[in-house]
């Protein structure tokens, strides 16, 4: 069933949800949020898209199969944990690089393995939820 209201609404909702999901992912570093909830929101945006325009259209917009996305995410999360091997720490110990300083307070930019891990979680949740929901919608 195609609803013109839903289609028009989806055009606004989908990008908004996607941007908000990225916001949640980044915010999660020190505040409530993070990869899991971000991934859920991201998946929601594509679910709205699939309801409005059909699952085939959603899969086309996604370009990569959600299963692959989820597994790549698992790989990224694992990779983030494995970075610790180079510094001799235990698995999944957070690794920080302070640029322009030497601590959290003074550094102007601090790339770290924790964000990478969160991105991995984001993709796992995003891909996992989407693959289930799309499969269910196609069955029904």
């Amino acid at each position: 069933m195609k609803s013109i209201i839903l289609t028009a609404g989806a055009r606004l909702l989908v990008p908004l949800l996607l941007v908000f999901s990225i916001f949640m992912l980044l915010r999660g570093h020190n505040l409530p949020g993070g990869g899991f909830i971000g991934g859920l929101l991201g998946a929601t945006s594509f679910i709205v898209y699939a309801i409005a325009l059909g699952t085939a259209e959603a899969r086309r917009a996604l370009r990569v199969s959600p299963e692959t996305l989820g597994m790549v995410g698992l790989g990224i999360a694992l990779g983030a944990g494995l970075i610790a091997v180079f510094t001799g720490d235990a698995l999944f110990t957070g690794q920080w690089l302070w640029i322009g300083g030497d601590s959290y307070e003074t550094a102007s930019f601090a790339p770290n393995s924790i964000l990478v891990f969160d991105v991995g979680v984001y993709l796992v949740v995003f891909g996992g939820i989407l693959s289930m929901v799309l499969a269910l919608e196609e069955e029904l």
Partner: peptide, 13 residues
């Protein structure tokens, strides 16, 4: 523990 997970990802791709 890590090896089977890495294998799972690689084997899936």
């Amino acid at each position: 523990l890590v090896i089977p997970f890495v294998t799972a990802v690689a084997a899936f791709l």
